[in-house]
């Protein structure tokens, strides 16, 4: 497998540093996002989530959680802290306004447990609301990313959504993988 490196950070960062307060500073920030998450909305590294077309409120909450330490990731903590607080909302809206990219994932059978997801993630699994806050779009997301997140919730490595921690803990690893495969193929 080829190493996956997002190597375009330098330009975006230098531009950002030199002109942080200019009106188009946000474009520089977003260019940094695309350097890893994909210039056409989907990364070659399927452990990184598709962001384009994700629910704005969900993106906003994740950026804030990365900044505050409620969600932990070495790279994203650094990246999210480089976005100005007043820009988070607008950045999330700009990302959400883009079209969700289509992936190569093939359709898989629906596990019975999928019904429990629909209450919060929406009947078509394109995102919704939960009592604990915004629920992301799952339909068409990368299976590798979904599996990793479900595992992280189950094992307590991701702790920014209590209901997800409990639900994922109640499933076996192959049940989580089955859900991921089905969701990726939607």
């Amino acid at each position: 497998m080829r190493p996956f490196i997002c190597a375009a950070l330098a330009l975006a960062v230098v531009g950002f540093a030199a002109d942080a307060r200019a009106a188009d500073a946000l474009d520089g920030t977003l260019a940094t996002c695309w350097s890893c998450h994909g210039v056409e909305g989907a990364s070659n590294d399927h452990t990184l989530p598709i962001l384009w077309g994700q629910k704005a409120k969900y993106i906003e909450k994740q950026i804030r959680d990365f900044r505050e330490g409620d969600r932990e990731d070495q790279i994203m903590s650094s990246m999210a802290s480089s976005i100005k607080k007043d820009d988070i909302s607008r950045a999330a809206s700009l990302i959400a306004a883009k079209a969700w990219p289509k992936t190569q994932a093939v359709a898989a059978a629906a596990p019975d447990s999928i019904e429990a997801c629909k209450g919060c993630h929406g009947s078509d699994l394109t995102g919704g609301e939960s009592p604990e806050g915004p629920a992301p779009r799952l339909a068409g997301q990368f299976a590798e990313y979904l599996t990793a997140q479900m595992e992280a919730f189950a094992h307590g490595d991701r702790r920014n959504q209590k209901t997800m921690q409990a639900m994922m803990k109640s499933l076996k690893p192959d049940e989580r993988a089955g859900l991921a495969a089905y969701l990726a193929g939607l």
Partner: peptide
């Protein structure tokens, strides 16, 4: 100096 060498996000697996 800053920017003299490239900056990359290259997570280890």
């Amino acid at each position: 100096k800053p920017g003299a060498t490239p900056s990359a996000a290259n997570r280890s697996k």
